[in-house]
Every structure is written in structure tokens, then in C-alpha cells.
């Protein structure tokens, strides 16, 4: 038996002839928070479902706490908490009734139910709503009930499928804090399509695209990847010959790309991409330089790296082709 809490090897799942995921493999240490990052339709939910033992895989193996998800299904189910994409709630039950029901079917001993349900409610800040019928709860509260459901039996492994999707910004922060507070005691694997979220909460980020693992990174590495696409988009007119080398000399600027395809209508106008380290903000120096050199500045816009940019950088040879939109 190895020390890895989750071991996924050569995992594939096909629906008919279409492959949802292909040859996915990774492993997770005890106490880690792993982010599963990818655009919609990348195979995140499929992977989460296979991990939770809900979907059988077409091929490959998943071991959780040393047990094969398929062959020792019941052993695995006792050891995981799972929040599906849509929280599996019974709208007619009160929060407390619901959590009691879950605690029963998860096999918590009768004597421990009261305490564990109470703990889960405290953890998820549901105490003041314990007698509210779930139907009447806001989306943020429902999500918390969903998480409470996943932790009520104190499982070593928690699987959360898009835990912050559809929440408002304040609720997102609350849910993220909640997840962070669960770390260490539990091994957590969560899926998301929001890059900053993954780099904020997770120890490691697994990027998945079109059913395949593109890369496994720490958030710091990811940050490095991002620097390439962090920068400014500038629309300006005038002679660029002199400006370009000077721009490159500004501290923090890493590269300039002239996008001639986008020199629209007026041939004097240019679209210029300036990339810079994500930690620096050389915007005012760039603007000052352009103005000082007597060029006309029409637009200067800060661009933040998007998940799509990272994907393109990781999956294609021409990292900056994304700007030719």
C-alpha cells in the first residue's frame, strides 16, 4: 500500500464512440488540496464522478485510500464525501433533517450522529438555518448544505465538483474559505473553471483539456506560465520604429508584439501587444513613453491572463496566437 491517498492511472471513459476523458493519471497525497482545472466540457465532471464511484470507468484504475473504486466500492464510499455539480438536496427537508438522513445512510453510528451533524452545521455556518426547509434557502446556503453533506461523516477524502459555480462574489469567498479550512484534515479534490480560484485554494493544479491532462502544476508555476500572457493591449498611431526598442527597455516589460493584422481601416493605426511580468505594473511608463515620443495613444488596456490563454500556451506552439482574435 502506498502513501498516496488518491491514485489515478490510465483512466479513460467513453460514451459510445466519443471519449470524455483519455488516459488521465495523477496522484494526490494525504492532506493536499488539488484543483482540477479546465474549461466546460473538458471532462472534469466525468473524472469527479468516476473518483466518487458514481460512474464506472471504461478503462484504468482509481484507488482511494488503497481501495479500488470499482472493486471495493463500498469501502471507498465510506471514505469519501462527494458534492456533485448540482447539490443533491431534498427540497422538502429542513437542513437538520437532511443532514441526519445523510448521516444515517453514510453509516454514522446512532450515538455519533447528533455531534457530527452539529459539527458539520457549525463548519458550514448553517446553525441559524438548521430548521429552514431547503427549498427556501438561497443558492449560497444550498451550496453550503451540499458541502455539509460531503463532510458530515468526516471522510478522509472530499470530492467537490465546481463548488463555487453560480454563487455571488461574497458567497464565493465564503465557500473558498470554508474549503481552505477543511484542508489538512481532509484530502480535497475540487474542480473549477476559474483559474485564480484554483491558484488561490489549491496546493497543486491539474489542468485538463479535451479529456486529457495537459499539465500538473503548483500555483507558483502556473503564475510563471501566466506571466507570458499578462500585459497591455495598445492602440496607437505614429512611427513605431523608435518606440519599440525603448518599450522593451522599460523594467518589467518582457516582449512587444506588433499585430499588423489588426491595423484596421487607417494604416497608420497599430495594435501593439506588450507583455510583462504579472507582478509589475509598467502601464504609466508605457503611456508616458508613447506620449513623449509624439505618438498618438488611442487605447491602453491591461490584459489579464485567462484560462484560455494558459491552455493555448500549454497546448500550442504559438503561445501568443490568442491575440489575433
Amino acid at each position: 500500500m502506498s502513501s498516496k491517498t488518491i491514485e489515478v492511472e490510465h483512466l479513460s471513459k467513453a460514451y459510445g464512440s466519443t471519449a470524455a476523458i483519455e488516459d488521465v493519471h495523477f496522484s494526490v497525497d494525504a492532506g493536499e488540496i488539488i484543483g482540477f482545472l479546465g474549461p466546460n466540457g473538458a471532462g472534469k465532471t466525468t473524472t469527479m464522478r468516476i473518483l466518487a464511484g458514481y460512474l464506472p470507468a471504461t478503462s484504468g484504475t482509481v484507488k482511494i485510500a488503497g481501495y479500488d473504486v470499482h472493486r471495493h466500492s463500498m469501502e471507498v464510499r465510506r471514505r469519501i464525501g462527494y458534492l456533485p455539480e448540482v447539490p443533491p438536496l431534498y427540497p422538502d427537508m429542513s437542513v437538520k433533517q437532511y443532514l441526519y438522513f445523510v448521516s444515517k445512510i453514510k453509516g454514522i453510528r446512532a450515538g455519533d450522529r447528533r455531534r457530527q451533524v452539529y459539527n458539520a452545521m457549525v463548519r458550514c455556518q448553517l446553525i441559524e438555518r438548521e430548521n429552514t426547509v431547503i427549498r427556501q434557502l438561497s443558492k449560497g446556503y444550498r451550496q453550503r448544505v451540499g458541502i455539509a453533506q460531503a463532510i458530515v461523516h468526516e471522510p478522509p477524502v472530499i470530492i467537490l465538483d465546481e463548488p463555487t459555480v453560480g454563487l455571488d462574489p461574497r458567497q464565493i469567498i465564503e465557500v473558498r474559505n470554508l474549503i481552505k479550512s477543511l484542508a489538512r484534515e481532509h484530502t480535497i479534490i475540487l474542480s473549477t473553471h476559474i483559474l485564480p480560484e484554483a491558484s488561490m485554494i489549491c496546493d497543486r493544479v491539474i489542468i485538463i483539456n479535451q479529456g486529457k491532462v495537459v499539465t500538473t502544476n503548483t500555483p507558483q508555476d502556473l503564475q510563471g506560465q501566466l506571466e507570458i500572457s499578462s500585459g497591455y493591449e495598445i492602440e496607437l498611431s505614429g512611427n513605431l520604429e523608435i518606440v519599440l526598442p525603448l518599450l522593451k527597455a522599460i523594467p518589467g516589460v518582457t516582449n512587444t508584439i506588433l499585430d499588423n493584422n489588426l491595423s484596421i481601416e487607417d494604416t497608420q493605426r497599430h495594435m501593439l501587444r506588450v507583455t510583462c511580468k504579472s507582478t509589475t505594473e509598467p502601464g504609466k511608463d508605457i503611456a508616458a513613453l508613447i506620449v513623449r515620443q509624439g505618438l498618438e495613444l488611442h487605447e491602453l488596456r491591461r490584459t489579464r491572463p485567462s484560462l484560455e490563454d494558459v491552455f493555448l500556451e500549454l497546448t500550442t506552439e504559438e503561445p501568443l496566437s490568442v491575440y489575433n482574435q
Binding site: 464522478r49 466518487a52 464511484g53 464510499r77 465510506r78 462527494y82 447539490p87 443533491p88 445523510v102 453509516g107
Partner: peptide, 13 residues
């Protein structure tokens, strides 16, 4: 319809 089948199917039952 409610997706609660995922809860039942991933519980030790």
C-alpha cells in the same frame, strides 16, 4: 430529476 440519485449512489448503500 433533482440529482439526489448521485447522493444515494455514492453512499455506502
Amino acid at each position: 430529476k433533482q440529482g439526489t440519485i448521485e447522493l444515494l449512489a455514492t453512499s455506502p448503500l
